[in-house]
Simulated scan of single mutants.
Amino acid sequence: MRWQDIDQQPCSVARSLAIIGDNWTLLVLRDCFLGVRRFDDFQQRLGVTRHVLSDRLRKLTEGGILDKVAYQQRPVRHEYRLTSMGRDLYPVIVHLAQWGDQYLADDHGAPLTRIHKQCEHTLQAQLHCRHCGETVAAQDIRVEENAHWKGKILMNNQG
Protein backbone atom coordinates (compact mmCIF):
# COMPACT_ATOMS: atom_id res chain seq x y z
CA MET A 1 0.00 0.00 0.00
CA ARG A 2 1.22 3.49 -0.84
CA TRP A 3 1.37 6.21 1.86
CA GLN A 4 -1.13 8.42 0.01
CA ASP A 5 -3.70 5.59 0.29
CA ILE A 6 -3.21 5.08 4.04
CA ASP A 7 -6.57 6.73 4.79
CA GLN A 8 -8.33 3.87 2.98
CA GLN A 9 -7.26 1.28 5.55
CA PRO A 10 -9.82 0.00 8.06
CA CYS A 11 -7.68 1.35 10.89
CA SER A 12 -8.28 4.48 12.97
CA VAL A 13 -4.54 4.98 13.54
CA ALA A 14 -3.83 4.85 9.79
CA ARG A 15 -6.70 7.23 9.01
CA SER A 16 -5.47 9.65 11.68
CA LEU A 17 -1.91 9.49 10.36
CA ALA A 18 -3.21 10.42 6.91
CA ILE A 19 -3.97 13.86 8.40
CA ILE A 20 -1.46 14.37 11.22
CA GLY A 21 1.23 11.80 10.48
CA ASP A 22 4.33 13.78 9.69
CA ASN A 23 6.80 15.76 11.76
CA TRP A 24 5.88 19.24 10.50
CA THR A 25 2.17 18.66 11.06
CA LEU A 26 2.70 17.59 14.66
CA LEU A 27 4.88 20.64 15.26
CA VAL A 28 2.19 22.90 13.76
CA LEU A 29 -0.32 21.30 16.15
CA ARG A 30 2.07 21.76 19.07
CA ASP A 31 2.31 25.44 18.24
CA CYS A 32 -1.46 25.75 17.85
CA PHE A 33 -1.84 24.53 21.43
CA LEU A 34 0.76 27.10 22.48
CA GLY A 35 -1.39 29.85 20.97
CA VAL A 36 0.17 30.35 17.54
CA ARG A 37 -2.41 31.18 14.85
CA ARG A 38 -0.81 33.14 12.03
CA PHE A 39 1.20 31.83 9.08
CA ASP A 40 4.22 34.09 9.60
CA ASP A 41 4.35 33.16 13.30
CA PHE A 42 4.31 29.44 12.47
CA GLN A 43 7.03 29.94 9.89
CA GLN A 44 9.21 31.98 12.22
CA ARG A 45 8.90 29.48 15.09
CA LEU A 46 9.33 26.35 12.97
CA GLY A 47 11.83 27.54 10.35
CA VAL A 48 9.91 25.55 7.73
CA THR A 49 9.62 26.63 4.09
CA ARG A 50 6.48 28.55 3.08
CA HIS A 51 5.55 25.75 0.67
CA VAL A 52 5.74 22.99 3.30
CA LEU A 53 3.91 25.07 5.91
CA SER A 54 1.21 26.03 3.43
CA ASP A 55 0.73 22.36 2.52
CA ARG A 56 0.48 21.25 6.18
CA LEU A 57 -1.98 24.02 7.09
CA ARG A 58 -4.09 23.15 4.03
CA LYS A 59 -4.10 19.48 5.01
CA LEU A 60 -5.12 20.29 8.60
CA THR A 61 -7.85 22.62 7.35
CA GLU A 62 -9.20 20.10 4.84
CA GLY A 63 -9.05 17.41 7.53
CA GLY A 64 -11.25 19.45 9.87
CA ILE A 65 -8.51 20.02 12.46
CA LEU A 66 -8.14 23.77 11.82
CA ASP A 67 -10.43 26.54 10.60
CA LYS A 68 -8.95 29.22 8.36
CA VAL A 69 -10.46 32.53 9.51
CA ALA A 70 -9.88 35.98 8.04
CA TYR A 71 -8.64 38.46 10.65
CA GLN A 72 -7.92 41.32 8.21
CA GLN A 73 -9.64 42.36 4.97
CA ARG A 74 -7.17 44.69 3.18
CA PRO A 75 -5.09 42.81 2.35
CA VAL A 76 -6.92 39.62 3.29
CA ARG A 77 -5.00 37.76 5.98
CA HIS A 78 -5.97 34.58 7.73
CA GLU A 79 -5.26 32.83 10.99
CA TYR A 80 -5.71 29.18 11.85
CA ARG A 81 -7.86 28.15 14.79
CA LEU A 82 -8.30 24.71 16.24
CA THR A 83 -11.73 23.21 15.68
CA SER A 84 -13.33 20.99 18.33
CA MET A 85 -11.87 18.06 16.37
CA GLY A 86 -8.46 19.73 16.63
CA ARG A 87 -8.81 20.55 20.33
CA ASP A 88 -9.58 16.87 20.96
CA LEU A 89 -6.00 16.13 19.83
CA TYR A 90 -4.62 17.83 22.94
CA PRO A 91 -4.27 14.60 24.94
CA VAL A 92 -2.30 13.09 22.05
CA ILE A 93 0.12 16.02 22.02
CA VAL A 94 0.43 16.05 25.84
CA HIS A 95 1.10 12.30 26.03
CA LEU A 96 3.63 12.51 23.19
CA ALA A 97 5.43 15.41 24.90
CA GLN A 98 5.31 13.62 28.24
CA TRP A 99 6.85 10.51 26.66
CA GLY A 100 9.59 12.67 25.13
CA ASP A 101 10.17 14.40 28.48
CA GLN A 102 10.63 11.05 30.18
CA TYR A 103 12.78 9.27 27.61
CA LEU A 104 14.44 11.90 25.43
CA ALA A 105 15.18 14.92 27.63
CA ASP A 106 18.80 15.96 28.00
CA ASP A 107 20.66 16.84 31.21
CA HIS A 108 18.70 20.09 31.47
CA GLY A 109 15.38 18.25 31.71
CA ALA A 110 12.13 18.86 29.88
CA PRO A 111 11.90 22.16 27.99
CA LEU A 112 8.31 22.85 29.13
CA THR A 113 6.34 22.08 32.25
CA ARG A 114 2.56 21.79 32.04
CA ILE A 115 0.80 23.07 35.16
CA HIS A 116 -2.80 22.18 35.96
CA LYS A 117 -4.35 25.63 36.57
CA GLN A 118 -6.93 24.36 39.05
CA CYS A 119 -4.53 22.74 41.54
CA GLU A 120 -1.23 24.38 40.43
CA HIS A 121 0.61 21.04 40.27
CA THR A 122 2.69 19.67 37.41
CA LEU A 123 0.48 17.70 35.06
CA GLN A 124 1.06 13.98 34.79
CA ALA A 125 -1.45 12.95 32.12
CA GLN A 126 -2.80 9.42 32.35
CA LEU A 127 -5.35 7.31 30.50
CA HIS A 128 -8.46 6.60 32.57
CA CYS A 129 -11.49 4.42 32.01
CA ARG A 130 -14.54 6.68 31.66
CA HIS A 131 -16.76 4.05 33.31
CA CYS A 132 -14.85 3.12 36.47
CA GLY A 133 -12.26 5.92 36.65
CA GLU A 134 -9.30 3.52 36.94
CA THR A 135 -5.96 4.41 35.38
CA VAL A 136 -5.27 1.98 32.53
CA ALA A 137 -2.14 0.82 30.70
CA ALA A 138 -1.80 -1.18 27.49
CA GLN A 139 -1.80 -4.50 29.37
CA ASP A 140 -5.17 -3.57 30.95
CA ILE A 141 -6.97 -3.31 27.60
CA ARG A 142 -8.48 -5.97 25.36
CA VAL A 143 -9.08 -5.00 21.72
CA GLU A 144 -12.03 -6.43 19.80
CA GLU A 145 -12.98 -6.06 16.16
CA ASN A 146 -16.15 -4.22 15.20
CA ALA A 147 -18.60 -6.76 13.69
CA HIS A 148 -18.62 -4.79 10.42
CA TRP A 149 -14.84 -5.19 10.04
CA LYS A 150 -14.65 -8.83 11.25
CA GLY A 151 -12.09 -10.75 9.19
CA LYS A 152 -10.95 -7.63 7.28
CA ILE A 153 -8.36 -6.57 9.83
CA LEU A 154 -5.21 -8.37 10.83
CA MET A 155 -4.91 -7.76 14.54
CA ASN A 156 -3.01 -9.03 17.51
CA ASN A 157 -5.43 -8.88 20.46
CA GLN A 158 -2.69 -9.03 23.06
CA GLY A 159 -2.63 -5.29 23.69
Rank of each mutant, 00 (worst) to 15 (best):
D40F: 05
G151H: 10
V143L: 12
K150Y: 09
D31A: 13
G47R: 06
F42W: 01
Q124H: 06
A110H: 00
A105D: 10
D41Y: 07
V52Y: 06
N146A: 14
N156Q: 05
L34N: 10
A14C: 15
L82F: 09
L154S: 11
A137T: 06
T113W: 01
H148C: 10
Q102P: 00
R56P: 01
I20R: 03
Y71S: 06
Q72I: 01
C32N: 03
H148M: 12
A18K: 02
V36G: 00
Q73C: 05
A18D: 03
Q72M: 06
Q43M: 06
T122I: 07
H95R: 14
C119M: 02
Y90K: 14
M155Y: 15
Q98R: 02
A97W: 01
L17M: 14
A110I: 01
E120C: 04
Q72W: 03
V136I: 14
L66Q: 00
A138P: 06
T113H: 04
C119D: 15
R2P: 07
L34H: 12
H131T: 08
Q8N: 13
Q118E: 15
P111C: 01
L60N: 00
L34E: 12
H51G: 04
A14M: 11
L154G: 11
D31V: 02
T25H: 00
G63E: 04
H108V: 05
D40I: 07
N23K: 15
S54V: 01
I93L: 15
H95E: 12
T122Y: 00
Q158K: 08
Q73L: 11
E145M: 13
P91A: 10
N157S: 14
R58S: 15
D40E: 11
A70L: 05
H131N: 10
D55R: 11
Q118R: 11
E79Q: 13
L29D: 02
H131C: 05
H128N: 09
L57W: 08
C32E: 02
S12A: 13
G64I: 06
T113F: 02
H116I: 11
H128D: 04
L60C: 02
M85Q: 14
D41R: 09
K150M: 11
